[in-house]
Design a protein around this nucleic acid. Structure first.
Lengths: 242, 242
DNA sequence: TAGCTAGCTGTAAGATCTGACAGGGTTAAA
DNA sequence: TTTAACCCTGTCAGATCTTACAGCTAGCTA
């Protein structure tokens, strides 16, 4: 079975449980003992949606949540907050602050000795990361990680795609499937460029009233409370694109 | 030299020319004869910015542009338009339409016999893709591509990161570096949630006048013509995040 | 034919935003 | 001590948006 077939088996998973098992299996074949995948979607900007596929020891995960380690976790900062695209290999440079180092040391007690984090960003404003960890801490183990870093990144890409298909598209990104009419999209696009109703009317050669009408309809479909909200939703959900 | 060191050498390139040479070299080491990287940034929604690092035969690239093949190119559709995260390996299933197949056959005449395309999405609304092609067309060559697909994906990630640092951050994403003050970001965030000036004032416990003031300042910094525009820019540039 | 969707238009009161006027304060770096 | 950056507030005319009412056409499908 080639690597690609292995990764593509993720796309055939129908349930979250199957996805969990398949990911654990692939991670295991790559030499990792633990994994955790998390995705954040800015459906609402102030309260982003998060979905976690946890293959970490439950105790560590509980402690992470309890202490709100997400706030200081440099891998989270790198992959989600800063939305970098390259992987982070866990080393002392990454966990350089005292709080970060403390968190790192605690995680070691739960068997997360060495590992790396991989970022994937989707087109609907989602930011996702996959962390893979090994219970080994030898120089050899670290070299192993480096040697399969490409495959690990690819695993992250495929896992994200699978999550998108079986989780996100049925929930937080449901609205993404919502169809705006051509006119609605045109009006939203120009409105997002800062055009007023009158200006859009001139551009599209219709009356200002009609522009209002289309923006209203688009807003209603998206549950937006005003024009700004409609633009923000359409943008962060990828509903409008050039 | 490990793979990672190889990829990280991309990050030390100071110029586009160096980046071109380094990418060509790495692609060569992976067994590819040609590459092309393209990124699209929605600085303006109606006129997206595009940057291309072309390692394809110039004649083919010219023909591609002349015939506006971007419109029918399934790899472009997959990576940029649909913003998928997994790679596309070029096969007949991908180029299944008649127009697509015709384009594919033409490309073969220029030495692009087999290959794959890799997508990378950044956090500022950029959609990028790297296509890697080989002049070989044997079964063996195709298997080779599959065996290094992970490394290829990683190359795409690192190349995008490098492009971001030496190209995008100096031009289209210049504004991304612009710093909005805390209050400006707070006001923008709530405005993007559909709140009116008065509502934001209540939330932040300041007067409506001050909310207007902050939004005005933020808008001026971003060159926005009104509140909608400011929200759209802040969002598409990743200036505001939860 | 009836029903549905997309697209289009009008009026008008009231809410909201914009821009230009003018003026406070604190904090930190030079 | 000056300078700069950030934060805060006021007024007011005019532009723009929101929401409510109401009604039109064209094309497709059951």
């Amino acid at each position: 079975m080639s690597d690609l077939d292995l990764f593509e088996s993720l796309l055939s998973c129908g349930t979250v449980e199957a996805l969990h098992a398949t990911t654990a299996s692939i991670a295991g074949q790559l030499g990792f003992d633990h994994f955790i995948y998390g995705v954040q979607v800015n459906t609402s900007l102030t309260r982003p949606y998060q979905f976690i596929l946890n293959g970490y020891p439950k105790e560590w995960r509980a402690r992470y949540v309890e202490h709100n380690y997400q706030k200081i976790d440099p891998t989270y900062y790198h992959c989600i907050t800063k939305r970098q695209t390259i992987p982070v290999i866990w080393d002392s440079r990454v966990f350089k602050g005292s709080k970060e180092a403390k968190m790192r040391n605690e995680s070691r007690e739960f068997g997360l000795l060495c590992g790396a984090s991989f970022a994937v960003h989707g087109g609907h404003g989602e930011a996702a990361m996959l962390s893979l960890a090994s219970s080994q801490d030898s120089y050899r183990a670290q070299q192993d990680i480096l040697s399969i870093i490409g495959k690990s990144q690819l695993l992250a890409c495929y896992l994200h795609e699978a999550i998108q298909r079986i989780v996100l598209s049925k929930g937080p990104l449901l609205l993404t499937k919502m169809e705006l009419t051509l006119r609605e999209k045109e009006c939203l696009l120009w409105a997002a460029e800062g055009k007023t109703g009158g200006e859009i009317a001139d551009i599209l050669q219709i009356t200002e009233r009609t522009v209002t009408f289309h923006l209203q309809n688009a807003g209603n479909k998206m549950g937006a409370s005003n024009r700004q909200h409609a633009i923000a939703r359409a943008l962060s959900m990828g509903l409008i694109a050039p």
